[in-house]
């Protein structure tokens, strides 16, 4: 029983990483109804920017805020520059452009900051919490994820622009008729997703260390979390991300074949199982198609 609880707590701690990533994925999905395969690389690039700022002597939280701002602007610029011109292209073209962005960010990060593994500071100090089950950073990560989630909730629920973004996502045509600039709402969605990705990156980097390829597998877990929670629900994304962390840990402990070797296939299994059994995820909206 003690092992069980221990595994669940440390699962939640790793799950917080996935929850952060899943949240960013869901944000972008809301804006463009597409899964951004370059999201992980964008987050990685933002984290490198933060690292550079800190290396130049900027205090952590100022670097944090600056990185968020830069990432937000970067996201908007990417949308305006790359995706606006292909607005009506088929989904396949979108995926190819995601792949292109993936290659660009990965290669640029390697070029600018090289492929050496770099440590990334944590603002939460070191030590142990809950009898050594969780580090302060992991606890801090969970708190940050929840704060981001709460901010998102208030933004979408209580601000005009949040309402406009929701309208643009749900029904672009009608939204345009009532005077919402739908295409700018999409750009805004990109900016926010990029900023959330930056938060995720900066929270994850102290755990997995900073290097250009750090996000590839985390992105898959993030997808798994987002799908499990339902791609249309930010709360679901966080719950799903935490759940994936717990599932991964429990399976690693109690199913003999699954050791550290089979961790990624678990993410795959979760994705396929959820999509097959309950495609709308735990908390997502059911999508009904009219024929």
């Amino acid at each position: 029983m003690e092992i069980f609880i221990q595994q669940i707590v440390s699962g939640i701690a790793t799950g917080a990483i996935y929850a952060c990533m899943a949240l960013a994925i869901v944000m972008i999905y809301q804006a463009i109804h597409n899964l951004n395969f370059a999201q992980g690389e964008m987050a990685m690039f933002s984290t490198f920017i933060a690292w550079q700022l800190i290396a130049w002597g900027t205090p952590y939280w100022i670097a944090f805020a600056l990185t968020l701002a830069i990432s937000f602007i970067g996201g908007v610029v990417i949308e305006r520059l790359v995706f606006k011109p292909i607005e009506n292209a088929p989904i396949l073209s979108y995926v190819v452009v995601f792949i292109a962005l993936f290659a660009i960010f990965n290669s640029l990060a390697g070029f600018i900051w090289n492929f050496e593994i770099k440590p990334f500071p944590t603002p939460f100090g070191s030590g142990a919490l809950f009898g050594g089950l969780m580090s302060p950073h992991q606890a801090g990560m969970i708190v940050v994820t929840v704060v981001v989630l709460a901010l998102l909730y208030f933004f979408f629920r209580f601000t005009r622009i949040g309402l406009a973004m929701r309208a643009a996502a749900v029904n672009p045509e009608s939204a345009r008729l009532v005077g919402i600039r739908v295409s700018w709402m999409t750009a805004l969605g990109w900016g926010m997703a990029s900023a959330i990705g930056a938060v995720a990156g900066m929270m994850i980097a102290p755990v997995v260390f900073l290097e250009p390829n750090m996000m590839v597998s985390i992105l898959l877990y993030g997808f798994a979390g987002a799908v499990l929670g339902g791609l249309t629900s930010p709360v679901g994304a966080v719950v799903g991300g935490l759940a994936v962390g717990v599932i991964e840990n429990l399976a690693g402990t109690y199913i003999p074949v699954v050791g550290p070797e089979l961790k990624l296939p678990i993410a795959l299994l979760v994705i396929v199982a959820v999509l097959v059994v309950r495609p709308s995820g735990l908390m997502g909206r059911k999508i009904v198609q009219r024929v």
Binding site: N34, V95, V216, L220, F223, L264, P265, A267, L268, V272
Partner: peptide
């Protein structure tokens, strides 16, 4: 199982397969 998936969901499931294959 892919029968039930469409578009981007299928892309996602197959992407998972590709990432997991080396393991």
């Amino acid at each position: 199982p892919a029968l039930r998936l469409e578009g981007i969901y299928l892309a996602l499931a197959t992407f998972g397969l590709a990432v997991a294959m080396p393991q």
